[in-house]
Nucleic acid binder design. Structure first.
Lengths: 288, 288
DNA sequence: GATGATTACGGACGCCGTAAGCATA
DNA sequence: TATGCTTACGGCGTCCGTAATCATC
């Protein structure tokens, strides 16, 4: 039902008028669509002036997003674009296998010299959404999970994902932290620590492992994050690697729970040949 | 798009006529709906005589199933049934926390003496589907996963699930099997073994761990499964517990990968009060 | 009083049913 | 030849746009 699309647009733009313009309708039509939805559900879905979803409306918006996302994907798969044009958008999360990305791009530039590649830095949700919407040809995403377990970023079977890398996790502590002499750490020991979260690390996996405590900063930038750790404002959890090097803090392997930082490449199930080629290049250079 | 519902019904019944009857349309209407879908996608979705989905049609059916499932859930959540009537259907997988189920039912019968409870044995997909369709009030499901990791049975955010139990896994070998003296086993050692799979154990998690080999029997019954193991026809992977006891075979703990058998209870996000009560009873008796 | 959501009403399009056509077992 | 899917066509309902109304900042 196209009412759902109208509803989502209204929620996003917080305006009937703006939504109508975007969808090519009159504001009257949008108003009727929302009224139709509210009558059908028997509940008020939007507060007016300002236009905001009610709790029920927010829940519906969640469902509607997923529904339309899957419709988009279904259409993309069925229309089966022969190949991407002269441009390819690639959404990447900052910590998702950056070394492999460089290799993959090199391969792609050699085999498709005329292809213009837009590398778009994004968080996981944005990257996955871009692939689902057909805006990006592929997404390099990452997250925390158990070894050999998929990240499960999109709805089941919605998108295809290929594992690229799994690296150990390290707890990053400021020098002089009470725990900084430990050879390895359990998350339990840091249960009430102030966590500084790298944006691309899926916090739910950690929260699920029983770690609580106030989050003092949701970093969008690794340098800032590390400087905050250095200043003693909190501790961070990062994939081991060169980006976690520097002065003023110490890296200690995470012992328990047995989690890893995993990178995957996410695409449609029937990607364009260029994208398939990229995936194969990435996969062949992966250690998994 | 109600075309999708028609399409799914046609696929399920393998007949335009039967689908039309079930949906309250004429066969002509259904034919037009399918034609509309095929024109819109530009691909043949069904073979006729016999009526079977083409590969593209099968893929669309997968998407359509999920889409309509989520629509059902959205409607259920929004209409917000005050409470279940005089009946409550509970779908349970055979190995999903059977001890907790017994406790939960006892609590429920005490607090709601007039409630008639239908306990419906089902596999995971069936159970989850029944909850999504509003046919069952809750489902007790199980599967194999890493410790503290959700099973991820439904699409993200579609249903609410609560962890009930996690128990170690044991490899069940016939007496005299070459490996039967090992104190613990890695799955690698059994890579090419003939596996006998308990239906409620999610095979993908095992396959993902790298275990292959032909599956000689997909059991629907634990006694049969164990007798097959006893007869030397294969090896099985089961949650540790009394159901895995008996003569003629031996249980050996699974050491690697670090997987557990996990049970969850799955419901709508806003279940009826009776169901909420059941969940609370289960949760409070759980060790998680 | 202006911006913006709602209500009233008329026209166009889409969708379903009836009925005829056609292919396959 | 019979079953069952497809095509043709007509009526009814749905949905959108225009325009007037109403509410809120």
């Amino acid at each position: 039902l196209r009412d759902l699309r109208a509803f989502l647009t209204v929620v996003r733009t917080a305006s009937f008028t703006a939504a109508a313009r975007e969808l090519g309708y009159t504001q009257s039509a949008v108003s009727q669509q929302i009224a139709s939805l509210e009558e059908e559900t028997g509940r008020r879905l939007l507060d007016r002036r300002p236009v905001r979803p009610t709790p029920a409306g927010a829940r519906l918006a969640e469902h509607a997003t997923r529904i339309l996302q899957r419709l988009d994907v279904a259409r993309s798969e069925l229309t089966g674009h022969a190949d991407v044009g002269s441009e390819l958008r690639l959404d990447v999360c900052p910590l998702a296998a950056p070394d492999l990305l460089a290799d993959g791009l090199r391969v792609l530039r050699r085999s498709h010299p005329m292809l213009q590649i837009f590398v778009h830095s994004a968080d996981v949700d944005e990257a996955v959404g871009a692939v689902a919407a057909g805006q990006a040809g592929a997404a390099l995403v990452d997250g925390i999970t158990a070894a050999d377990s998929p990240l499960g970023l999109a709805d089941a079977g919605l998108l295809a994902s290929t594992a690229l890398a799994e690296v150990p996790l390290v707890v990053v502590l400021p020098d002089g932290h009470p725990l900084h002499t430990q050879p390895a750490l359990d998350l339990d020991a840091l249960r009430d620590a102030p966590w500084i979260v790298a944006p691309s690390l899926s916090w739910p996996a950690i929260a699920n492992a029983g770690v609580g405590g106030p989050v003092v900063y949701q970093g969008s930038d690794l340098a800032t994050l590390l400087s905050l750790v250095r200043a003693g404002h909190g501790v961070a959890l990062l994939p081991d690697g060169p980006w976690a090097a520097g002065e003023g803090f110490i890296r200690i392997p995470l012992r328990h729970p047995a989690l890893v930082h995993r990178s995957e490449v996410v695409t449609l199930h029937n990607p364009a040949p260029v994208v398939e080629h990229l995936i194969e290049a990435l996969r062949s250079r992966s250690r998994l």
